[in-house]
């Protein structure tokens, strides 16, 4: 119930210094970074998250009170997506052969560590929307409603996407573990 407590103190506290931003930073820094990295490259993700918090600094606390997480992830996502688009555009402008940036594209982004576990690979290979929703839910701790808001989807759509994501990962894990057995049998 720690998240519930956080909710309540968020709602009640009237803080007079920038402390609330720093608390948000501690709480969401890693989560936002992981989320941003699933959209853009590692370097840009840091830009995006820093930008998100700098924007938070400009908000009166009362404006984000009670929905801080949704606010942060929405801004973070918007920044990441526009970053992604401008990156692609700049590439198009710089040279005509559209070589994907070595550090761009959701698939490579997420794979930072060379040896990914089965689950890691399964997450990485999810369609973009499913991966985003999954991270928002399981890492960000957002409710369906909040995810719907961040991703501009309906709540029931979120439920469906998450269900698909879970099933996809489940199948991926199952098939992976099944694969060596099949291979053995065939040889």
């Amino acid at each position: 119930m720690s998240s519930l407590k956080a909710q309540m103190s968020e709602g009640n506290a009237v803080q007079s210094d920038g402390k609330w931003v720093l608390e948000a930073l501690d709480q969401y820094e890693a989560k936002l970074l992981r989320f941003a990295r699933s959209i853009v490259g590692e370097a840009q993700a840091a830009d995006v998250v820093q930008d998100t918090f700098l924007r938070l600094c400009k908000q009166p606390e009362r404006d984000v009170r009670g929905h801080l997480a949704a606010w942060l992830f929405t801004v973070c996502r918007n920044r990441a997506l526009s970053q992604l688009r401008s990156e692609r555009r700049l590439q198009n402008m710089e040279d005509d052969d559209v070589q994907p940036h070595p550090d761009s594209g959701p698939a490579t982004k997420f794979e930072r560590k060379e040896q990914l576990t089965r689950v890691g690979r399964a997450i990485r290979e999810l369609p973009e929307r499913q991966r985003e929703a999954l991270l928002l839910k399981l890492d960000g701790g957002l409710s369906y409603k909040e995810i719907a808001e961040v991703m501009q989807l309906s709540v029931s759509n979120v439920g469906f996407i998450l269900h698909q994501a879970v099933q996809a990962i489940r199948n991926e894990i199952a098939s992976e573990s099944a694969l060596p057995a099949v291979a053995r049998r065939m040889s």
Binding site: E29, R37, A46, V119, I123, D139, V166, I169, R170
Partner: peptide, 16 residues
């Protein structure tokens, strides 16, 4: 499955 994903995600201790 959900637990496995949570666990996987948390391995990546990202920081600014």
């Amino acid at each position: 499955t959900l637990d496995a994903v949570r666990e996987e995600v948390k391995k990546d201790d990202a920081a600014l």
